[in-house]
Amino acid sequence: MEKEQVKSSKLKTNKDLFLAFFRVGLLGFGGGPAAIPLFHREAVVNYKWMTEDEFGDTLALGNTMPGPIATKMAGYIGYRVNGVIGCLVALMATVVPTVGLMIILLGILQKYKNLEWVNSMSAAVVPVVGVMLAIMTWDFFQKSGKSLGMGRAILFTTLAVILLEFLNIHPAIVIFGILIVSLTSFKKGGDSK
């Protein structure tokens, strides 16, 4: 009886993982950065598989590694929730709709690329993705203000903008550098050592 409950529980967990990441794969237009708010909604808000801070840490670490962020996030969250099987389920659920939609939509777009409504449809998605990313950016900024203190959050944000946008430093180097500085210089809550 107990084995059946455990098996049923794991099946439900895998089903939840599949549905959550299938939605992300299906709706994550615009690539990995556009899918991050969807990952956040599923992992933190809907299923509560991780906290806001854990999601932020996972995202930061995932951005320092090579490869697409969507598969890294899905793989890690799936593994965290249900081990290797959860990792495989989440990866498949993320990749399959993307590959399927890519084949179908790119075929359609190539066939009708000269039509005005196709160009308008493609352009209309961009502002929605921008708003989703802006909302998530604001949330991360507020969280860093609470944990580092608003002054340090503004300093790190300004420094990151300068390094990324004006000096064209790779994001992994910026994240790694800020992590090292924050680990060696500051305690949580913004107090100096």
Score class of each variant (00 low, 15 high):
K111R: 06
K111Y: 00
K111S: 09
K111C: 04
Y112F: 13
Y112P: 03
K113H: 11
K113P: 03
K113I: 04
K113D: 09
K113N: 14
N114W: 00
N114S: 10
L115S: 10
E116R: 14
E116L: 15
W117R: 05
W117V: 08
W117E: 08
V118F: 14
N119P: 07
N119L: 15
N119I: 14
N119T: 13
N119Y: 11
S120F: 05
S120M: 13
M121F: 15
M121I: 12
S122T: 10
A123S: 14
A123E: 13
A124I: 11
A124D: 09
V125C: 09
P127S: 08
V128I: 15
G130E: 12
V131W: 02
M132D: 03
M132W: 05
M132K: 07
M132S: 11
I135V: 15
M136E: 09
M136A: 09
M136C: 10
T137R: 00
T137H: 02
T137E: 04
T137W: 02
W138H: 04
W138M: 06
W138I: 08
F141H: 03
F141P: 03
K143Q: 03
K143D: 07
S144E: 04
S144I: 04
S144Y: 03
K146N: 04
K146F: 01
K146T: 01
K146A: 07
S147T: 08
S147H: 03
L148A: 01
L148S: 02
L148Y: 00
G149N: 01
M150D: 07
M150V: 13
G151R: 13
R152D: 02
R152Q: 05
A153L: 12
A153C: 12
I154M: 04
I154V: 13
L155A: 15
F156W: 05
T157M: 02
T157F: 00
T157A: 06
T157S: 05
T157D: 01
T157E: 00
T158H: 04
T158R: 06
